[in-house]
């Protein structure tokens, strides 16, 4: 499992490197919410929200997950670690839900900086970014 994760991350990093022109040196992944969001979120809660199984936070308020762009290294790492699926599995998963009217995948909003900016402005959102990009405008609820 660990080996697979490393492999996925490596593959994703290489893909990222091609895009960015340099090997992305990111330290880890942080799951972030709006600073006013006081919910205590477990990895299972986060997974359920991102898989469309749960549409609200434990306090009952609406939860809206946002994804990074397809192919982003942080995204592959998040999907394999928190959602416990690889890139193909997550695509097949959403294909199954999408075409049965049971759910739609989270919106893609760009890279870590875009996700952070959106989340800083909207208490309903939850996303994940490169740990190095986390700052006081958002609250980190989970890190790996």
């Amino acid at each position: 499992m660990k080996y697979k994760t490393i492999k996925t991350v490596l593959a994703a990093s290489l893909a990222g490197a091609t895009l960015l022109g340099s090997v992305a040196a990111w330290s880890g992944v942080a799951v972030i919410v709006h600073p006013s969001n006081a919910n205590d979120l477990s990895a299972t809660d986060i997974s359920r929200i991102f898989l469309g199984k749960k549409k609200s936070y434990p306090d009952g308020s609406e939860a809206i997950p946002v994804d990074q762009k397809d192919g982003a290294a942080v995204r592959s790492s998040f999907v394999s670690t928190v959602l416990k699926k690889n890139d193909q599995q997550i695509k097949a998963y959403w294909a199954q839900l999408l075409f049965t009217g049971k759910g739609t995948p989270p919106k893609e909003v760009g890279a870590s900086a875009d996700v952070r900016q959106l989340i800083a402005e909207n208490p309903a959102l939850i996303g994940y970014i490169d740990s190095a990009d986390a700052d006081g405008s958002v609250k980190v609820v989970h890190q790996f």
């Binding site: 549409k55 609200s56 609406e62 809206i64 946002v66 999408l98 075409f99 739609t104 919106k107 909003v109 959106l118 402005e121 909207n122 208490p123 309903a124």
Partner: peptide
């Protein structure tokens, strides 16, 4: 539960919750 259609319009516009969306978002797949 807040209407989910807000989500799409907020994200599309990159704005805050102040936006009111009356038109439904239609998804074609």
């Amino acid at each position: 539960m807040q209407p989910k259609l807000l989500t799409a319009s907020i994200l599309a516009a990159g704005l805050t919750l102040g936006a009111t969306a009356q038109a439904a978002d239609v998804r074609i797949n």
